[in-house]
Amino acid sequence: MKDGWFSKRRVIILSALLVIALLCLAFGTALERGGLTSIEKMFRDAFSPLQTGAMVIYGKIAAIPDYFVSVANWREENENLKKQVSSLQEDLNNLKEVEQENIRLEELLGAYDSVVNEWDPVVAKVISRSNSIWYNTLTIKGGEDQGFLKNMVVVNADGLIGRIMNVSKHTSEVLLILDKEAAVAAFEQITRTPGIIEGSDKKEDMLSFIHVPYDAVIKENQIIISSGLGGIYPAGLRIGYITDITVESGGLMLSCAVQPFVDFDRLEEVMVLKPLGAGVNH
């Protein structure tokens, strides 16, 4: 080992021999062998638990991307479910609306059982309400197609609303009793004191019961109903109740402020009273 040249040459020769030996070994093991040597078996057996453990860990790690993919799927599913919930919520709201509408319609029909023999009540939806200071009208769905005609009376469960003023193919314009032009012949329910109902000059949503005889025995809270005189409105339709009584300017007549039973700001469905046999009814 002290001779550097010899040592170096020996190392080179030994290395070359080692390389050749290893290549021969590799060549020999390149072909299919009869079986593993006992050393190889021992090594593999000793190594297999470590490999198994590593594969378990690998399985867990490899599952992480799947988890994120699952999360993405969950998000998508969540979005779909949210849409579904939203849709179902909408359906539920619609059902509630229908339920409420049903209740209102039952009330509406129940209130006019007595008139069914004389009239053919047709339910119509309110489309719009006019807010003009010049006239008080509302538009309902249904016109000539429903057999509606001018001057047909419109009511709801609370009482008289007005009469049809104009009719188109699919809509009708209703003149409310709040309008000054919509005079209704009426009387007080108990005493039968006659008078005229028209829109109030003082308050928009109030009525006036005018031309009441000076000696009439009337009091506040008494109910005013239609008298049937005048030929348009049938008798007995509830209109409102008296809230105030004053003497008219001439001093010969009384005038009463009347609070209508109908809430004109919350009308959704109304009923058109068609005379029996007055045309189309769907």
Binding site: A21, L22, C24, A26, T29, A30, I39, E40, F47
Partner: peptide
């Protein structure tokens, strides 16, 4: 090489 069981010696080299 022992683990692979093939071409034994090549990895050593």
């Amino acid at each position: 090489d022992i683990l692979l069981g093939k071409y034994i010696g090549l990895n050593i080299l």
